[in-house]
Design a protein around this nucleic acid. Structure first.
Lengths: 181, 181
DNA sequence: CCTGGCATGTAAGTAGTTACATGATTGA
DNA sequence: TCAATCATGTAACTACTTACATGCCAGG
């Protein structure tokens, strides 16, 4: 269900097309929710049928028509209800942990190589997040309540990636320090 | 695909029934991969058809027959190949972040209440993990390589929950400190 | 001339959830 | 008597991915 609400909240910020939504999911929104255009177009149809949004078709020359979607009053009410509704932290699914848990079949070198790759990915993501923080949130004290909430999603990412990075390093050190059997 | 390999690696440790596998997913394995019995039984049939495992049916009185599954040589080879194959860190999907990102529609109290709930969940999980660490891994220096790998999955959980906890607290403090507009 | 951006979709498949179903045994 | 545990499954559905499809325009 969350995809639908992610779309509603993006359209609440400003009406746009399916294509524009897909770009949002490729940007900051994608840091905590992902969706491809196929899924987005399907969801938009469903939401329109439910009466939570309306489309305005804008013909363009040389390009296919653009459908600009906007929230209806019912859509806004739904979104409002959803943000207040309690939710649970998600369960994790992590392939690397599954492989480490297999233990006996994995060589030390192979495990360290995998951890090093992961370390690099987290490092890259962290760099991205920190750059955004610097550019978009230079002075946290000046932020309004709503801006602070958005900022917290970024802080979440920064903390998360730093923590993953630290775990990878701890893990590599622990495996490297294992005496040969 | 990972579910199949999670099953293979559990059966590699020791052959067991679908029911037993489901219990594994309710335990430690569930900390980083989840599956219900319906999904497990379907996957077992698929894996058997592929020739990666074999079933031995054990009749029981008063209970339905038990199917004990064990890896074949082909299954073991597949598992061995999979653990070595590089994988990417998973993308996160987090409903709470989606709600914070909606910002404008969420009241301060509502956000703080949600964060407090999450804080509690992470606190509970952390307690569970730390108890397991104490009981199962009292002396890390003595662990073999394979045991260290398993231990690292637990360390991952401990670090993760501590970090989530810290973020929740940071978030609550930042929202609480917002001056009234 | 070819790539990338704009803009929309269908179709088929995989992964996972929810609901339903059966039936004996054991312990409170 | 009631709930829980053991042990297996089917059916229907939701969520998400991958592959395929169209067609014009702008810029290098």
């Amino acid at each position: 269900m969350s995809l639908e609400y992610a779309i509603l909240s993006t359209l609440f910020a400003s009406p746009c097309s399916g294509y524009d939504l897909a770009k949002q999911f490729d940007g900051s929104l994608g840091f905590f929710w992902q969706a491809r255009h196929q899924q987005i177009y399907r969801a938009l149809n469903k939401l329109e049928t439910q009466g939570w949004l309306v489309a305005e078709t804008i013909p363009q020359q040389g390009k296919p028509s653009k459908n600009i979607y906007a929230l209806t009053a019912a859509g806004r009410a739904e979104l409002q209800a959803w943000v207040q509704y309690p939710c649970e932290p998600p369960m994790l699914k992590n392939e690397l942990l599954l492989k480490l848990f297999a233990g006996e079949l994995l060589s030390r070198d192979c495990a360290i190589a995998a951890l090093t790759r992961h370390r690099q990915r987290h490092c890259d993501r962290l760099t991205t997040y920190e750059l955004i923080a610097q550019q978009d949130y230079p002075d946290v004290a000046q932020l309004s309540l709503a801006e602070r909430m958005k900022y917290l999603t970024l802080r979440n990412g920064i903390r998360y990636e730093r923590d993953r990075l630290a775990w990878c390093e701890e893990a590599i050190a622990l495996l490297a320090a294992t005496p040969d059997p």
